[in-house]
Amino acid sequence: MQAGILLAFAAYFSFAGADASLKWIGPDLPIFEIGFFVSLFALLPALFTKRPEDNWGNVFVPKRPGLLALRMLSGTLGGIGGVIAFTTLPLAEAYALIFLLPIFVTVFSRVVLKEPVGWRRWLAVFGGLIGVLLVVRPGFREILPGHFAAILVAICGAATVIILRVLGPSERRITLIGAVLVAGIVVNGILMIPTYETPGRELWPVLLLGGVFAGMGHLLIVFATRLAPAARVAPTQYSQIVWAAVIGATFFGEYPDGLAMVGMALVGVSGLFTLVREEQRFGWPSRIPLIRNR
């Protein structure tokens, strides 16, 4: 149990490192080119998530191809939105918006799956929205494309969770992870062609590091859920806000003010509460394979 939770913290630190790499590269390369190379390099560590009983052909042999295509679409759009968000916003601010994901899960659960949603979960939704308003402060601060991109990431992540509730019990993990990485490589590879710029020599190590960080995050989170229940592992994802604040201050000179920190705390508490209620009422860990949805 303890080893699994420690691996989960390491996984989300790795994801935060990948996102910081995106921010570092952001001013120097087009969005789709960043997404292509990071997805390509992320595929290498993620290959080790393969179970002995699986084979590489399983990635392209889904049992429910229609739903897997939706999973690939939501994952690819979320990945592109993540690149835009992290290259244009402070790290901690981007995470605060992305962590609206559990709130969108609550809304989608009610609208799409017709699940009952009690007043406590609606209160968590309201609290999360207040937190976002404190972070973004529309009317007092400039609204950037990155803000909309981060919200798109949260919506795509929530859609992924809903899809995985149906796909999770039947599809192989290698299919769920590998198909999305391959889709990200193909889509970004096509979209980057019109604006392609050969990365400078100084960018290749950062691109490689970002991809390895992302792939290692997937690998570590898979190992973590083999050692500890997903209900214990899932809340560790909110450590990314702490990592983002530390990395942002250390490498990018980003220091959230008091109101922003209160807002981030509200978003985090609302999301954690939603995760707990999901687990208590609907058996969430047994129905959703825990993989990163950003």
Results as ranks from 00 to 15, higher is better:
45 P>Q: 05
168 G>A: 02
156 C>S: 09
222 V>K: 14
177 I>M: 08
289 P>R: 09
212 V>H: 12
28 D>S: 14
63 K>V: 09
153 V>R: 10
30 P>A: 10
100 L>V: 09
13 F>M: 13
280 Q>K: 15
215 G>M: 02
243 W>E: 02
156 C>Y: 06
210 G>Y: 06
263 G>I: 07
2 Q>R: 15
273 F>W: 13
130 I>C: 09
37 F>D: 00
146 G>F: 06
190 I>N: 03
9 F>K: 14
265 A>P: 02
22 L>Y: 11
277 R>G: 09
176 L>N: 04
71 R>W: 12
58 N>A: 15
194 P>C: 01
101 L>R: 14
171 E>N: 11
153 V>Q: 03
234 A>K: 11
288 I>P: 04
243 W>A: 09
85 A>S: 08
255 Y>I: 15
223 F>K: 15
75 G>C: 04
263 G>A: 12
147 H>C: 05
233 V>S: 09
40 L>K: 12
47 L>K: 13
193 I>K: 10
31 I>H: 11
83 V>W: 06
146 G>K: 05
262 V>Y: 06
124 A>Y: 03
140 F>Y: 13
149 A>S: 07
1 M>P: 06
113 L>N: 12
102 P>Q: 01
123 L>I: 08
269 V>W: 07
9 F>D: 08
71 R>P: 01
22 L>R: 15
99 F>W: 04
257 D>T: 04
168 G>M: 09
249 A>W: 09
272 L>A: 12
261 M>L: 15
153 V>C: 07
283 G>C: 08
180 V>P: 00
249 A>D: 01
146 G>A: 08
241 I>C: 11
125 V>S: 00
40 L>N: 04
249 A>V: 10
281 R>C: 13
1 M>A: 11
15 F>T: 06
126 F>H: 12
230 A>C: 02
136 V>I: 04
233 V>D: 01
294 R>A: 15
147 H>Y: 04
289 P>H: 06
231 A>P: 00
116 P>L: 14
148 F>S: 13
97 L>Q: 07
237 Q>I: 11
274 T>Y: 03
238 Y>A: 08
257 D>W: 08
92 A>L: 06
57 G>M: 15
45 P>E: 02
178 G>K: 04
242 V>L: 14
162 I>M: 07
280 Q>R: 15
4 G>I: 05
181 L>M: 12
211 G>E: 02
263 G>T: 03
47 L>I: 09
247 I>S: 05
150 A>D: 00
170 S>L: 14
128 G>W: 06
249 A>S: 08
201 R>G: 09
118 G>T: 07
155 I>V: 13
93 E>H: 13
40 L>D: 01
98 I>M: 13
35 G>L: 07
196 Y>R: 10
124 A>S: 07
293 N>G: 13
92 A>I: 02
163 I>F: 06
188 N>R: 10
68 L>P: 00
215 G>E: 02
11 A>G: 03
184 G>P: 02
205 P>E: 00
26 G>A: 13
106 T>M: 14
258 G>T: 13
277 R>T: 11
203 L>P: 01
156 C>A: 12
168 G>N: 03
44 L>P: 00
203 L>N: 04
130 I>V: 10
204 W>S: 01
